[in-house]
Simulated scan of single mutants.
Amino acid sequence: MSKALLVIDMLNDFIDERGKLFVGKAGKDIIPLIKEKITEFREKNLPIVFICDNHEKEDKEFEMFPPHCIKDSWGSSIIEDFEVREEDKIIKKRRYSAFYGTDLDLFLREKGINELFLAGVCTNICVLYTAKDARERGYSVKIFKEGVASFNEEAHKFALKEAGNTLGCEII
């Protein structure tokens, strides 16, 4: 079974206090575990995919959320805590799921990947919907319980429960 790490939306607008949709302390608290997992995957020569919210200025999502992660802005950039290397894949997305309207599935299939490890923000939004779409495409999905966070602790807990019970993801 070939594996890949998906680092979801660890971007300035979510993780930095100056960001447009700052997740809060919970978002900062998951950085060390994600860094550790990036190192582990690199040591095993396994793919790391940075999933990046990347919106147009007039995106429909802004009817629900304040404008954030506008393409080519500071807010849409991966936080400086992570070293992004040339061999890493960057997927820019405009919707919650990393699969919707992107080439993520094609990239993973070309690499023979069938097991995904998820970390990042927000558990109940982009992590959950990426997990759902991954499961519907036949991927095995594992979510790092200490590697995901959200604005709302109750929604975070619900999403982990939903991912495990309904989607069949393994919460590790």
Rank of each mutant, 00 (worst) to 15 (best):
K157S: 10
A163P: 08
P32G: 10
N12E: 12
V141E: 05
L160P: 03
L5H: 09
R94E: 15
L5R: 10
S150R: 03
V141L: 03
A159M: 06
K3Y: 00
E86F: 12
K37A: 10
T39G: 00
R85W: 08
K71A: 07
C69P: 00
K161Y: 06
V7H: 09
L160D: 02
I113A: 06
L106R: 14
K161Q: 10
N54H: 15
T166R: 12
P32N: 09
G120P: 01
V23R: 06
K145Q: 13
Y100H: 02
A163F: 08
V148E: 11
D72M: 08
F14A: 08
G138T: 05
N114L: 06
K71S: 11
E162C: 08
I30T: 04
R95G: 01
R137F: 03
I78C: 11
P47V: 06
F62N: 10
K57F: 13
M64V: 00
N114H: 09
H68N: 09
E63P: 14
L104I: 06
I51H: 10
K20M: 07
I70H: 07
V84Y: 03
L33Q: 10
D72F: 07
T130M: 01
A131P: 04
D53C: 08
L46P: 05
L46T: 10
R42L: 07
E110T: 11
F22I: 12
G19V: 03
E153R: 11
I78D: 12
K161V: 07
E36R: 12
C169W: 02
S2F: 00
C126I: 02
E61T: 06
F99S: 03
A131I: 03
A119V: 13
A149C: 09
K92R: 15
M10W: 07
E110F: 04
F65Y: 15
